[in-house]
């Protein structure tokens, strides 16, 4: 392959009000990923180019961007898989700070709102959990918080709602499906988290670099649990009777 035509979105809020795409030529190296190309620009052409990257191994989730209009991790997208005309834009769902860097701090305040892991009180230590029971929650714990799912989610991107976003549904599900957790966050997600705004269009599941089945395994499960507690009269009666029983047992 020859040189790469790399278009990078440049935006310096101190100097301009709108960003622009600037084209650079980068020599191709075998097995190169997009981050290599962007770093080449930063090191050899313009050191002021702002990017976020840490591990370069698809483990930290810092280098999220929209590569050829598809939200992807720069470190995980191989140049030979997308051809040598590449455009790199920052995540569109978040306010831009500079160049490819966006302000994702809104996520911290959402994460703060989700009730934390609450184990059954008075359990004998060390805890015992069957190996197979770990599996469900473990899938969600693969999340590296790259926030690509948030970026691609049309609810976050286009509409101003109270919806937390896919990442946070996965977070809540990871704790809900923890075998020793006692809380049920689905009602909270329906009331506060706006899970109803999700219309299962599954773009988040498509872009997830960790291949988590966000919609199928997290969001739909939480929706069904919320339906149990809030919409389904029969399930509500059963649940209530069950919890009354549990109270008696305690």
């Amino acid at each position: 392959m020859t040189d790469i035509n790399l278009k990078i979105y440049r935006f310096n809020p101190e100097e301009e009000s709108v960003g622009k795409f600037v084209e650079y030529k980068v020599p191709y190296v075998d097995g190169m990923v997009v981050l290599d190309a962007v770093r080449y620009v930063q090191e050899k052409i313009d050191p002021t180019l702002a990017i976020r990257w840490n591990c370069k191994a698809a483990k930290c989730g810092s280098c999220s961007a929209e590569i050829n209009n598809r939200p992807s991790l720069m470190c995980k997208t191989r140049v030979d898989s997308i051809g040598n005309n590449i455009s790199v834009a920052p995540m569109g769902a978040y306010p831009n700070i500079k160049d490819l860097v966006t302000d994702i701090s809104a996520n911290w305040s959402i994460l703060k709102k989700i009730p934390p892991f609450t184990p059954k009180p008075g359990m004998e230590k060390p805890w015992r959990i069957h190996p197979a029971d770990v599996e469900r929650s473990k899938e969600f714990k693969k999340c590296i918080e790259c926030f690509l799912c948030q970026d691609v989610c049309h609810v976050i991107r286009e509409h101003n709602t109270k919806y937390f976003g896919p990442r946070h549904m996965v977070k809540a599900a990871s704790m809900d499906m923890h075998p020793l957790d006692v809380l049920d966050r689905s009602e909270f997600l329906d009331d506060e988290g706006g899970i109803g705004f999700c219309n299962i269009t599954k773009c988040c599941q498509d872009v997830c670099p960790e291949h988590i089945h966000i919609t199928d395994n997290a969001i739909i499960q939480e929706k069904e649990r919320a339906a149990d507690l809030k919409y389904d009269p029969i399930a509500m009666i059963i649940k209530r009777r069950k919890s009354r029983k549990e109270k008696v047992v305690k």
Binding site: K7, V18, K20, F21, V22, E23, I45
Partner: peptide, 11 residues
């Protein structure tokens, strides 16, 4: 190393 500004729209 050509460096030139292209459109502001991502098209």
């Amino acid at each position: 190393m050509v460096e030139n500004v292209t459109s502001t729209k991502n098209t």
